[in-house]
């Protein structure tokens, strides 16, 4: 792998990792997370993947590094501060969380998240990786360093639990969306981003 190839990877991964961190912590910390993550990728560039299969897992591995970075940053940040016990336990167990006072979460919180926040932090994280970061099951398995089967099963459990919580909370659960609905959602999301 050449320096030029690293530059191309940098351009590709930078926005993804920044978004990942930015959705969970303040902008300054998010920038530090992306910076340190890409430093690690560069330091290990001589070992970088060369086959197509390996290149695909580079993205997932980079998310894994970013997850560690964010987790450690949050652990330091919240070590002496007050935080919901479940969140604090998650942070100290190495599970990054969406920080409670994080500005960008406000919109999402207004949307309905009281129900979502009833899930255990690790299920929240799993669902967020799939829905927010757009990671595939294989990629999530790489990030969390576990098997694809385990992730697929955990995803089913988390989805069912979320649907049950929504029903209990009087919320409709439209979890049988058609391809058309999905297409419309993605189009709307793209337009919103632009």
């Amino acid at each position: 792998m050449t320096e030029d190839e690293f530059r191309a990877v940098f351009d590709s991964l930078y926005p993804d990792i920044l978004s990942y961190a930015g959705r969970r912590t303040d902008p300054s910390t998010a920038e530090d997370v992306v910076s340190e993550t890409l430093f690690v990728v560069w330091r290990r560039w001589p070992d970088a993947p060369e086959t197509e299969d390996e290149k695909q897992s580079l993205r997932a591995w980079t998310f894994g590094v970013a997850r560690n970075m964010l987790s450690n940053a949050q652990r330091a940040k919240f070590r002496a501060s007050k935080l919901d016990t479940a969140l604090k336990a998650a942070v100290f167990a190495g599970v990054p969380v969406v920080e409670p006072d994080h500005g960008p979460m406000v919109d999402a919180r207004q949307a309905a998240t009281a129900v979502f926040l009833k899930l255990p932090p690790r299920e929240q994280e799993l669902l967020q990786m799939v829905a927010w970061e757009g990671l595939s099951i294989d990629e999530v398995a790489e990030v969390l360093d576990t098997s694809r089967t385990a992730i697929a099963m955990r995803l089913v459990r988390a989805r069912r639990r979320l649907a049950a919580l929504m029903r209990a909370g009087g919320l409709a659960t439209n979890d049988d969306a058609t391809a058309q609905q999905l297409w419309e959602m993605r189009t709307a999301a793209q337009e919103s981003a632009e």
């Binding site: 926005p15 920044l18 959705r23 949307a111 669902l127």
Partner: peptide, 19 residues
Amino acid sequence: VRVLMAQVAPAPTGVAHAG
């Protein structure tokens, strides 16, 4: 999952994508 999340916890907006 993506459909459910869009209803209950959509991806936060206002996050810088390019920095």
